[in-house]
Design a protein around this nucleic acid. Structure first.
Lengths: 227, 227
DNA sequence: ACAATAGTGTCTATGAGACATTATACG
DNA sequence: CGTATAATGTCTCATAGACACTATTGT
C-alpha cells in the first residue's frame, strides 16, 4: 500500500469582536460537496507548502490581511469518512483578529460573512462536514487561553485602553468583569502591558493607551467562573 | 495538481515514571532514513484508518498494551522537508502510562527502551528528524496539564495512594511538593479522587487507596513554580 | 524498640472579589 | 453645567505556602 494518498487541508476558525460580541468568519460554499452550506474557510495544503503557510495563505485570501493576526494550531481531525471527496485530514487553526472589514468570498465560495458565535453554538446555524466540532474546540481554546495568556490583545489594535481589553474578555467569556479588579490585575502584572504615554479621546475622560508587553503569561491567571 | 499526495504519520511521545524519574519510550531505527538513530515510535496511518486508531495501534505494537493508557493529541508537524521520504505530515500524540514492562522493538526497529527525559532534554541523546521539537512540546504539555487536571492519575495504577500521586508530580515537574499541602488540596477537591476503603501495605504505616473521581479538573490548580 | 511511611493542624501572607467615588474631557 | 467615560482604594474572606509531630504497621 502506498501511504502517499492523503490530502491535507487547513481549516480556519477566525474570531473577532464586533458590536461587543464574539463573531466567527464563515463561508457559504459554492460547489459540491455541501454546496450552499456554511462552513469554516479553508483549503488544501499545496504539495510543497508548509501547513502553517497554507493557513496564512487561506487567511489572507478570505480576510485580505495576514500580518499582525494571531494564528495558532488547534488540532487535527482525521476520521476516514469526514470528507466525501476522499481521505482528507484537516489541520485546524485558530486566528484572532481586531475588528476587520467585511471578508471576501474565495474562489469556491458564494459568500462570506461574520456570524455571531452564539448563533453557531445554539445550533441555529448548522455547519458542513465536522466543522461544528472544530469550531467548538477552537472557541473553547480561546476562552481557556484568555485566563493565563496575553491572547486577548490579539483582538485589539496595537494600542488599546484597559477598557477595550476588558471588553474583549467580556465578549469572549460572555460574563461581566469588574473594572477595578481588572485594571488592578492587568496593570499590576509586571511586563504584561506597558503604557505608551499617549491618551485616547473618545467620549468621556481620555484613557491611557497601552501596548502588549514582553511577558505573554498572566501569573496568577484570571478566572472566568468567578469560583 | 492532485492534492492526494501526502502521507500522514502518527508519532508517539510515551511517558512513564521509573525509579522516581520521568522516562520516554524511544526506538532505535533499523532502516533508512536515519538508521541507528533514536527516534519516537510511530508509523504511517493506513489508508482507511482513523488517525487516532493509528496512534493506538502503534502504541500497542511498541508496548504490548493500549487499554487504560491515556492518549491525547498534541499537534501536527508539517514542514515540507521534515522527512526525506517525501511529503509526510506527522500528528503527534502524548501517551501516559503506569510503569510498564520493557517495550518491544517494532518491525522497523533494532531496539526499543525507556530513556530518562532528562537525557533527551540535556541534548545528550539526539533524536532523528524533528523529533526533539515534538518531544519538547509533548513534555511541556504534560507538565502544564498536571497543574489543572487529573492527568497525573494516568501515570498511576487504577488504585493509588496520595503519596504515589505526589511522587508523580515530583517526577514530572522535577521539584519537591509539600506532603501536607498536597494531601489537603487533593483530598479537599470535591470529586477529584475517591477513597476505595482499602489500604495499601508496603513498608510503614498502611495508606488509604484512592481511585480517580468523576471530576477531571482541579480548581484552583496546583502550581509548579512555587511563585 | 526501632524503622519506615502515613497522616494531620496552625499560622502568616497574599490575592480574589465586592463595592462607590472622584477625575477629566467634550458639548 | 451636564454627560460620558476613566481611574482608583479599602475591606473581607479564602487559600497558598511554610513548618513538626503523632499514628500505624512490620521486623
Amino acid at each position: 500500500m502506498d501511504p502517499f494518498s492523503f490530502a491535507v487541508a487547513a481549516d480556519l476558525v477566525v474570531l473577532t469582536i464586533r458590536d461587543r460580541a464574539l463573531h466567527v468568519l464563515l463561508v457559504e460554499r459554492g460547489i459540491e460537496p455541501a454546496a450552499r452550506a456554511w462552513a469554516l474557510p479553508g483549503g488544501f495544503v499545496l504539495a510543497d507548502e508548509d501547513v502553517e503557510a497554507a493557513a496564512y495563505r487561506e487567511l489572507a485570501e478570505e480576510t485580505g490581511v495576514a500580518a499582525g493576526i494571531h494564528l495558532e494550531q488547534v488540532r487535527t481531525y482525521g476520521h476516514p469518512a469526514r470528507d466525501p471527496r476522499g481521505r482528507v485530514v484537516s489541520v485546524a487553526w485558530l486566528a484572532l483578529a481586531p475588528d476587520l472589514a467585511e471578508p471576501f468570498a474565495g474562489s469556491d465560495a458564494r459568500s462570506a460573512r461574520w456570524w455571531p458565535v452564539a448563533a453557531v453554538e445554539s445550533g441555529a446555524l448548522p455547519l458542513a462536514f465536522d466543522h461544528v466540532a472544530i469550531f467548538a474546540d477552537a472557541v473553547e481554546r480561546a476562552r481557556a487561553k484568555l485566563e493565563y495568556s496575553a491572547l486577548a490583545m490579539a483582538f485589539c489594535p496595537p494600542e488599546f485602553t484597559i477598557a477595550q481589553l476588558r471588553a474583549v474578555y467580556e465578549a469572549v467569556w460572555g460574563v461581566p468583569v469588574d473594572p477595578r479588579n481588572f485594571h488592578r490585575k492587568i496593570t499590576g502584572a509586571p511586563g504584561f502591558v506597558e503604557p505608551t504615554g499617549t491618551l485616547s479621546r473618545e467620549g468621556g475622560r481620555p484613557a491611557q493607551l497601552f501596548r502588549a508587553g514582553p511577558v505573554g503569561q498572566l501569573q496568577p491567571p484570571l478566572t472566568r467562573l468567578g469560583h
